[in-house]
Amino acid sequence: TYYTVKSGDTLNKIAAQYGVSVANLRSWSGISGDLIFVGQKLIVKKG
């Protein structure tokens, strides 16, 4: 599943919304830090 980052989103908010960890969200999407951008597509795998 892809999630497109919206204004005001954080990795914590997105992870909580999908019931996954921030570490997994980073790993799946190839992100090393906490910086995400509006319009960026993140990969989300539901448990």
Rank of each mutant, 00 (worst) to 15 (best):
T1I: 15
T1P: 10
T1R: 12
T1D: 12
T1M: 14
Y2W: 12
Y2S: 09
Y2C: 12
Y2K: 06
Y2I: 13
Y2N: 07
Y2L: 10
Y2P: 07
Y2A: 08
Y3C: 04
Y3P: 00
Y3F: 03
Y3R: 01
Y3T: 03
Y3V: 08
Y3E: 01
Y3I: 08
Y3L: 04
T4D: 05
T4E: 10
T4H: 08
T4A: 07
T4N: 06
T4F: 12
V5D: 01
V5Y: 03
V5G: 02
V5F: 04
V5K: 01
K6E: 08
K6Q: 13
K6N: 07
K6F: 04
K6M: 10
K6L: 09
K6W: 03
K6P: 01
S7C: 13
S7W: 12
S7K: 13
S7I: 15
S7D: 14
G8S: 05
G8W: 04
G8T: 05
G8V: 02
G8F: 05
G8P: 02
G8A: 04
D9E: 04
D9R: 01
D9P: 00
D9S: 01
D9W: 02
D9Y: 01
D9M: 02
D9F: 02
D9H: 02
T10I: 04
T10S: 09
T10Q: 05
T10N: 08
T10G: 02
L11E: 01
L11P: 02
L11G: 00
N12V: 15
N12K: 14
N12E: 15
N12L: 15
N12T: 15
N12W: 14
N12S: 15
K13P: 00
K13N: 11
I14R: 00
I14W: 02
I14H: 00
I14S: 00
I14P: 00
I14V: 08
I14A: 00
I14F: 01
I14G: 00
A15E: 01
A15L: 03
A15Y: 02
A15S: 08
A15R: 01
A15H: 01
A15D: 00
A16I: 11
A16H: 11
A16N: 11
A16L: 13
A16T: 11
Q17Y: 13
Q17V: 12
Q17G: 07
Q17L: 15
Q17M: 15
Q17R: 13
Q17W: 12
Y18E: 06
Y18R: 03
Y18P: 00
G19Y: 06
G19H: 10
G19F: 07
G19D: 09
V20T: 09
V20L: 08
V20N: 02
V20R: 01
V20D: 02
V20I: 15
S21C: 08
S21D: 08
S21G: 05
S21F: 04
V22L: 09
V22Y: 03
V22D: 04
V22K: 07
V22G: 03
V22P: 08
V22E: 09
V22S: 06
V22A: 08
A23Q: 12
A23L: 08
A23G: 09
A23I: 10
A23C: 12
A23W: 07
A23D: 15
A23N: 10
N24K: 10
N24H: 10
N24I: 12
N24E: 15
N24M: 13
N24A: 12
N24S: 11
N24Q: 15
L25D: 00
L25W: 02
L25K: 00
L25I: 15
L25Q: 00
L25N: 01
L25S: 00
R26S: 07
R26Q: 12
R26N: 04
R26L: 12
R26D: 01
S27Y: 12
S27F: 12
S27C: 14
S27G: 09
S27W: 10
S27P: 01
S27Q: 14
S27H: 14
S27V: 12
W28P: 01
W28L: 07
W28G: 02
S29Q: 06
S29W: 05
S29L: 05
S29C: 06
S29T: 08
S29M: 05
S29F: 05
G30T: 06
G30Y: 07
G30K: 10
G30M: 08
G30F: 07
G30V: 06
I31H: 04
I31A: 04
I31D: 02
I31F: 09
I31C: 05
I31K: 02
I31W: 06
S32M: 11
S32E: 15
S32D: 13
S32Q: 13
S32A: 11
S32R: 10
G33E: 09
G33I: 07
G33F: 07
G33L: 08
G33M: 07
G33P: 03
D34G: 08
D34M: 09
D34K: 07
D34H: 09
D34W: 10
D34Q: 08
D34N: 11
L35Q: 14
L35G: 11
L35D: 15
L35P: 08
I36L: 12
I36H: 01
I36S: 02
I36V: 09
I36Q: 02
I36C: 05
I36A: 03
F37L: 09
F37Q: 10
F37G: 06
F37M: 09
F37V: 11
F37R: 09
V38K: 07
V38R: 06
V38M: 07
V38E: 11
G39R: 03
G39C: 04
G39S: 04
G39F: 05
Q40D: 07
Q40A: 05
Q40C: 06
Q40E: 06
Q40Y: 04
Q40R: 03
Q40L: 08
Q40M: 11
Q40G: 03
K41I: 15
K41V: 15
K41C: 13
K41W: 07
K41A: 08
K41Q: 14
K41N: 09
L42P: 01
L42D: 00
L42Q: 00
L42H: 01
L42K: 01
I43H: 08
I43L: 15
I43E: 06
I43G: 03
I43N: 07
I43W: 11
I43T: 10
I43C: 13
I43K: 09
V44C: 05
V44T: 07
V44I: 15
V44A: 03
V44R: 01
K45G: 12
K45I: 11
K45A: 13
K45R: 14
K45T: 11
K45V: 11
K45W: 13
K45E: 10
K46R: 12
K46I: 15
K46H: 13
K46Y: 14
K46L: 15
K46G: 14
K46A: 14
K46N: 13
G47T: 13
G47Q: 13
G47S: 13
G47V: 13
G47W: 12
G47L: 13
G47A: 13
G47R: 11
